[in-house]
Amino acid sequence: MKREQGLLKNTSDCSFNRRTFLKGLVATGAIASMPAGILHAKPWERTKYEGGYKTFRNACPRNCYDTCSIKSFVKDGVLEFVE
């Protein structure tokens, strides 16, 4: 069977169908119980908090130094809030 080229095409189309299953691992704390590496386990609360939102990292466009970073949370194509 011919493979589709690029994992990452699939994820961008939100068709990564085991995402929900993998999220289950986060909920059970499976990753947090592994020997730590250079990547860190994401706190479960934050994963839950961000669930359903697409997040973007932006810079503040105000006319000072334009260097403050902003994290924006988008759901169903609508910007809901920023941090």
């Binding site: 994992l7 990452l8 999220k23 986060v26 990753i31 990547l39």
Partner: peptide, 22 residues
């Protein structure tokens, strides 16, 4: 860009992130 973002999404789906994001 897009590739980095998609890899970040993959890590996120497993519950992993960089110690200092960005």
């Amino acid at each position: 860009g897009k590739v980095t973002s998609q890899v970040r999404d993959f890590y996120d789906s497993i519950g992993l992130e960089l110690p200092e994001i960005g």
